[in-house]
Nucleic acid binder design. Structure first.
Length: 94
DNA sequence: TAGTTGACCGGAA
DNA sequence: ATTCCGGCCAACT
């Protein structure tokens, strides 16, 4: 396929989907896993337009630790993050 | 085809 | 501390 749906984009989604709950990766980390450690810019653009409800893209944050952006709203993103972290904590033990 | 945009990053003023 | 600039990559117009 000369014009595949950009495997990089697919990889980004795949990576995001593999992120365990409570874990937060930076755009740079996701880009690195996707095969383009320098495409952190593209990662943001891809997730921005191709947001999927099946993909926990809310686990992707900026290097500063700031949530960044979210199609649903940064509040929701932070809330989910805290919720998942909290849940993951009790899921590890207990 | 070329130019602009964007949920970024890092450094400099 | 905040604001601005340049660089990087993919998608959109």
């Amino acid at each position: 396929m000369t014009s595949r749906p950009t495997s990089f984009t697919q990889c980004v989604f795949d990576v995001a989907r593999q992120i365990p709950k409570g874990a937060t990766l930076t755009y740079a980390q996701v880009a690195e896993r996707a095969g383009r450690p320098h495409a952190y810019r593209a990662v943001g653009n891809i997730l921005n337009k191709n947001y999927d409800p099946t993909i926990p893209c809310h686990r992707v944050v900026r290097s500063d630790g700031t949530p960044g952006g979210y199609n649903r709203g940064r509040e929701q993103k932070v809330a989910i993050l805290q919720q998942e972290q909290h849940l993951g904590k009790r899921d590890v033990v207990r």
